[in-house]
């Protein structure tokens, strides 16, 4: 089999392994990508991430629900753990990359949506500083200053904690007006994001997880430019 044929075969294995939440299949294909000396970044974006994009479509069609999504994400991570250390800087070229500070605001211990958004950033080559969940508001500001990250991504799954995001936005903007801020989480609507003065909005009024997966398409589009 020629290199292109092998590439096609392995991309399909990676993609289908993610869709069918088959961690072993994804691991095997990932190791084969390394053995054959194929482009690792291509395998991540057009294999693993492409699979997750299909998962997003299955979720939209109500074929898949959150339990399936989480297992697909596990399969993607199984591949990413193997492939990511081998991505070469030159593979990324001028593709979007940078640093992101991410976390779930204080008062919120739900981090499923945040973890999926984190995965999307990692797939796209960002360095992710994950503060975890139930994070005191000042910590976001401190971490942004420490790392000089270009993006701060905040998540709140519950209405009762989303107000905390407004304070973080204000605090970060005061210290560093150039930082892009993304808000995500089930109760946050576009109106709310506007109200809080945030720059970006991980569109997630309906469901944080579903919308996080949609980011894959956008990242892949950016990558192909």
């Amino acid at each position: 089999m020629g290199n292109e044929g092998m590439r096609e075969k392995l991309l399909k294995e990676l993609s289908e392994g993610v869709v069918e939440y088959d961690e072993e299949r994804v691991k095997k294909a990932s190791n084969e990508v390394l053995d054959k000396g194929l482009n690792v970044y291509d395998a991540v974006m057009n294999g693993l991430a492409a699979g997750m994009e299909k998962v997003g479509a299955l979720y939209d069609q109500q074929e898949y629900f959150v339990p399936e999504l989480l297992m697909c994400a596990d399969a993607l991570y199984a591949g990413l753990d193997i492939l990511k250390p081998h991505i070469r800087l030159e593979d990324l070229g001028d593709k979007p990359k940078g640093q992101v500070v991410i976390g779930t605001v204080q008062g919120d211990v739900h981090d499923i949506g945040k973890n999926i958004i984190k995965m999307m950033f990692e797939v796209a080559g960002f360095t992710v500083h994950d503060l975890g969940r139930d994070v005191p508001l000042e910590k976001f500001v401190e971490e942004q200053l420490r790392t000089d990250a270009e993006i701060v991504a905040l998540s709140a799954m519950m209405t009762t904690t989303m107000m905390g995001m407004k304070k973080v936005v204000e605090m970060i903007k005061e210290k560093n007006p150039n930082v892009a801020i993304m808000l995500g989480g089930a109760p946050v609507t576009r109106d709310t994001a506007g109200l809080f003065g945030a720059d970006g909005y991980a569109e997630s009024a309906g469901n944080a997880v579903q919308e996080a997966i949609k980011m894959i398409s956008r990242l892949r589009e950016m990558q192909q430019k």
Binding site: Q106, G107, D108, V109, D134, P136, M158, T160, T161, M163, G164, K167
Partner: peptide
């Protein structure tokens, strides 16, 4: 976690599931 020192309204959460 009762967040007694936090400003504003935060509902309690379970810290160690």
């Amino acid at each position: 976690s009762l967040y007694e020192d936090a400003d504003g309204i935060l509902y309690p959460t379970v810290p160690s599931k």
